[in-house]
């Protein structure tokens, strides 16, 4: 069923990673990405792998969920691997067929790239798995708030994101209902060529469009009734708070970053 799609990926839990401040997690994810990209060789990347695995174990997220977030990028991984294998032609030749030459260097690089992408996806999806979408948008708003000085509408952007996230499940439910209703009138969405299939979407998309405009109008009215007037002077029920955990998390992350830099420095290229 269509409801099974995970969009907001938050996986509720009570691990150390869950309890950390969303702002800190967001910044540390950026540090993590830097860590992966400054690693020059497989040795440096190994430190990144250890960090990813450690963070994963701390988060207590089931392995199945990780597989779920990796699944959509499998084509990208295969594409990168093949590209590197085929186009890097330096080093010892391992296998040759007509114009295709597989070399030692090509194999090394493509492995390196694949591991890097997998670490990148796993590590950054830990952020969305352990942080609720609302906390995440709050964190983004807080982190971007200095930009208010240069007239960037930070609060408005964050509010838009929150609303969009809030309405994803509502619209999925609505789609489900409309699909059932049109199927009950004999709409056929499974057979036919691409053109026919595209045409079959019209009876679903138009009511869905109408519904989202209706939701938007109702929400705007409800917000106005409660005197919403933007971010100025607005307080929050749930304050983001930093704790000692965040300090430890940051230290932990920095140690690994230093590790990667050290490995880079000491291994000869």
């Amino acid at each position: 069923m269509i409801k099974d799609i995970t969009l907001g990926q938050y996986f509720p839990g009570d691990s150390v990673l869950h309890r950390m401040d969303a702002r800190v997690k967001l910044l540390l994810t950026a540090v993590f990405i830097v860590m992966l990209f400054i690693a020059k060789g497989i040795e440096g990347l190994a430190v990144g792998i250890v960090f990813t695995v450690a963070a994963f174990l701390i988060s207590k997220i089931p392995l199945k969920m990780m597989g779920k977030s990796l699944k959509p990028i499998i084509p990208v991984i295969i594409f990168t691997a093949v590209l590197n294998l085929v186009f890097i032609t330096t080093g010892d030749v391992l296998w040759e067929w007509k114009f295709i030459k597989l070399t030692r260097d090509g194999l090394d690089t493509s492995l390196f790239m694949v591991i890097r992408i997998i670490c990148l996806i796993c590590g950054s999806s830990l952020l969305t798995y352990t942080t609720s979408p609302i906390d995440l948008t709050d964190a983004i708003e807080k982190l971007l708030s200095p930009l208010k000085k240069v007239k960037v509408p930070v609060h408005e952007l964050a509010m838009m994101m929150t609303i969009a996230l809030r309405f994803i499940p509502t619209l999925i439910e609505e789609t489900d209902k409309i699909m059932s209703a049109q199927k009950a009138r004999g709409a056929d969405m499974e057979t036919g060529n691409i053109l026919q299939k595209a045409k079959a979407l019209i009876p679903i998309l138009i009511p869905l469009f109408v519904a989202s405009f209706r939701h938007a109008e109702e929400l705007a009215l409800a917000m106005e009734c409660r005197c919403y007037h933007g971010g100025e002077g607005r307080t929050r029920m749930k304050q983001l708070k930093m704790s000692i955990l965040d300090l430890w998390g940051t230290l932990f992350c920095m140690v690994f970053l230093a590790g990667v830099i050290a490995v880079n420095y000491f291994t000869k290229r």
Partner: peptide, 25 residues
């Protein structure tokens, strides 16, 4: 089967065409 709030499933340009959707199928 007529669902709850069936008016949310209307989509055609005219009422005539919308009623025709089922019979056409």
């Amino acid at each position: 089967l007529v669902f709850q709030y069936p008016e949310y499933q209307l989509f055609e340009e005219t009422v005539y065409k919308d009623i025709a959707f089922g019979p056409k199928n």
